[in-house]
Design a protein around this nucleic acid. Structure first.
Lengths: 191, 191
DNA sequence: ATTGACAAACTAATGTAATTAGTTTAATAT
DNA sequence: ATATTAAACTAATTACATTAGTTTGTCAAT
C-alpha cells in the first residue's frame, strides 16, 4: 500500500515552491523536493526532465501568481487609478513572496519559451490599462517598458537590501516614483 | 620550479571574472577557476574561504567597475546632463559586460557587507549629481531611489530578453524613461 | 479472475563539484 | 644553515544531478 503515490508535475512544483519559501530558493534541490514528497529523487524524472525544468517550472508558477495578483488589482479601475493599483499589487506580491519573486528574476537563464511567454502576461495587463489613454502603439510600448522597469527595479533593489536609510520612508519613495511616471502621461506632447 | 605560483585573491578574482565573461557566470566553479590558474581547486582555499567568497568577490569587482564607468560619465557634467550621462553609462556597462552585470544582480544572496557597501557607491555618485538641485535630503533620497530603480530595472529586463517587440526602439524606450524622470525634477512643488 | 502492458516507483552507479584534513615543500627571516 | 610559515598538494567526504536498468502496482481487455 505504500508505493505508487499519485505524483504529478503540479504536485512536484507546488512542493518545490513551498520548499523555496521555507528554506530559500537556493536550497531547492531534487533531493530535497523528493524527500518532502516521500520519494527518491530519481523518481521525479518520471514527471519532469530534470532540475532545469523544475527551476523554470517554479519561475512559471511564480509569474502566474504575480499575474493573478496584478490582474485582480487592475480590474474595475482605469488610468492613473489602475496604474497605482498595479504598482501596489506588484510590490506587495514581491514582499509577500520573496523567494518566488527571486525565481522570476532568475528565469533569464532558462530560455523555456513557456516561461518567456508567461513573463509577458504582466505586460499585457498594462497594455489593457493603457488603452484609455489612446496613445499610439509605439508610445504605449515605451511607457509600459519604463513603468515595468521601474516597478521591477525598485522591488529588486528593495529586496536586495538597499534603501536602508531611515531618512526617507521606503513606501513613500515607491509612491513618488510611480506618481512621477504617471504624471508624465498627461503632459505628453509628442508621437 | 613549478610549484609555488604567486597566487593571491586578486589574481583569482580576475581569473574568475574572465571565466565568467568567457563561459558564462553559471560555469564559474572553483574547479574551473583553479584549472585556469594551473592549480588544484583546494589550493584556492589558501586565499579565500570558498565559493561564497568567490561569488561575492566577483560581484564586488563588477560593482567597482560599474562605479568607475558611472563616475567617469558624471564628471564635468551637472544636473540633467549628468543624469543622462550616468544613465547611458549604466546601461552601456551592462550591455558590454553582461556576465558581470548578472553577478551584480545575484548579490542579494550573499550578505557580505563589503558588497553591500560597494553597492552604495553608485548611489553616492547620484547624490553628488543631485546637489545642484538643492532638494532636501529626504527628497533627494526619494528621487535617487527611483532613478536607480529605473536604470536597474530597465537594464535587467532588457538583459533578460523582454523588450523584443520590434514596434518600438529599445534605445528610445530607455531614453524616454530617463527623460520622464528627469522632467519631474523641474516641476517639484513639495518638500 | 488472469494476464499483459504501462507507468511510476525503486536501486545502483557515475560524474561533478565543494569542502575539509592532513601532508609536503619552497621561500624567507633569523 | 635552519626554523617558520604560507602555499601548494593528495586523499577523502559529502551533496547533488543524472542515467540505466529493475521491480511492482494498476488497469484494461479478454
Amino acid at each position: 500500500m505504500s508505493t505508487k503515490k499519485g505524483l504529478d508535475s503540479q504536485t512536484i512544483l507546488n512542493a518545490a515552491a513551498e520548499l523555496a519559501e521555507e528554506k530559500g530558493l537556493e536550497n531547492v534541490s531534487l533531493l530535497q523536493v523528493a524527500e518532502k514528497l516521500g520519494v527518491k529523487s530519481p523518481s521525479l524524472y518520471n514527471h519532469l526532465s530534470g532540475l532545469q525544468e523544475l527551476s523554470s517550472g517554479i519561475a512559471k508558477l511564480a509569474i502566474d501568481r504575480l499575474e493573478d495578483a496584478v490582474r485582480s488589482a487592475a480590474v474595475g479601475r482605469s488610468k492613473e487609478d489602475a496604474l497605482m493599483a498595479v504598482a501596489s499589487a506588484y510590490r506587495k506580491f514581491a514582499k509577500e513572496n520573496p523567494e518566488l519573486y527571486k525565481a522570476i528574476l532568475r528565469f533569464p537563464d532558462y530560455d523555456d519559451s513557456s516561461v518567456q511567454e508567461a513573463g509577458h502576461a504582466v505586460v499585457r495587463i498594462l497594455y489593457r490599462v493603457m488603452e484609455p489613454y489612446r496613445y499610439s502603439k509605439e508610445e504605449t510600448i515605451h511607457f509600459v517598458r519604463g513603468f515595468r522597469s521601474a516597478l521591477h527595479g525598485f522591488v529588486s533593489l528593495e529586496e536586495a537590501g538597499f534603501f536602508q536609510s531611515t531618512e526617507a520612508d521606503v513606501d513613500k519613495s515607491y509612491e513618488r516614483l510611480v506618481s512621477r511616471l504617471i504624471a508624465t502621461l498627461n503632459t505628453e506632447e509628442d508621437a
